[in-house]
Design a protein around this nucleic acid. Structure first.
Lengths: 165, 165
DNA sequence: TACAACCAGTTGCAAAATGCAATCGGTTGT
DNA sequence: ACAACCGATTGCATTTTGCAACTGGTTGTA
């Protein structure tokens, strides 16, 4: 734990926590893939993270206050990882990064559809999705909504592309 | 050059290019600090990057099409690095990351002021700043503007905090 | 024209981070 | 009783990073 920072710049400080190839992917999976257990994060991600790296990053994210861990009452060994408000507010960062990647990198059609919808929806859609995350990760109450949630719409769009191919 | 990607996810692909502790800092310095030469990036950054890492990252960013390099006509050895349109469009990613860091991390007052102004200004201010970057990095023409540029305003705010302390 | 300062990198090497596969002690369902 | 599953941990090889010295060349000044 060497927490001497290189500078007090907000971008630098953010990168000292999140500046590696895995941390934001873990947050992405928790956010958009609804992965909440170690095993889910380990096996159900596209990229195939190693278990030691996953364990290490979860520890870092816990220390940084971006996620929390609580025991799963249904299974004595399972832990449930949740995003904190701080973690949920990384959504716009991921959305911007996804929009940029979608525009300039060789994104696959099925994995790009979410980025496209999120980008087209803009900050208003992001706020709606963040509210849903507050409900599922923080247990916050939400006013009744009409129709499918943003999360459901993104998932449905993804599956629709997969099934079409 | 191993360019086999772990997945076609836009966030993953972005992280494969930018997911380290230095790349986005270099872009930050080019964008907000107007650093355009190797030596400026090496010595005038807060964090103190090593010359070999800087050389390596500049190569990667060139390959990725995020920056370009051209010879400086005033000095046979100097190169001028510029952001491409693709690089300029990383502005919102940096702005969101800065806003998040400003809110949740121990940001110093003088280095946080830019993040605050940028966050308060929102997408409209970002677009204005990106237009200025197109002018200074791509040589694009801009319609006449009234008063100081966004870059100048950010710089003035920074200096005002430094002088006050 | 000598020379110091500056220029963009490169090199060698030690230390740290990453990636992989096997494994651990424990829990759960059959 | 036992196989499958659980969240990690361990050992080890490979890769990346960080540091300092250095290279070959250019520029400004005396």
């Amino acid at each position: 734990m060497t927490d001497i920072s290189r500078s007090g710049c907000p971008i630098n400080l953010s990168l000292e926590v999140l500046g590696d190839k895995w941390s934001l992917l873990i947050i992405r999976d928790m956010m958009f893939g609804n992965r909440r257990h170690f095993r889910e994060l380990l096996t159900k991600s596209e990229e195939g993270i190693s278990s030691n790296i996953l364990a290490d990053r979860l520890k870092t994210l816990l220390d940084a206050g971006i996620i929390t861990r609580e025991d799963d009452p249904s299974h004595k060994q399972k832990g449930i990882y949740s995003l904190t408000e701080q973690g949920i507010e990384l959504m716009p960062v991921l959305a911007q990064m996804a929009a940029w990647g979608y525009k300039y990198l060789p994104v696959s059609e099925e994995l790009g559809i979410r980025a496209r919808l999120l980008s087209e929806g803009g900050p208003k859609l992001w706020a709606e999705f963040m509210d849903e995350l507050r409900e599922s990760h923080l247990g916050a109450k939400r006013r009744k909504r009409i129709g499918p949630s943003v999360g459901e719409r993104l998932q449905a769009a993804y599956e629709s592309v997969v099934n079409r191919k």
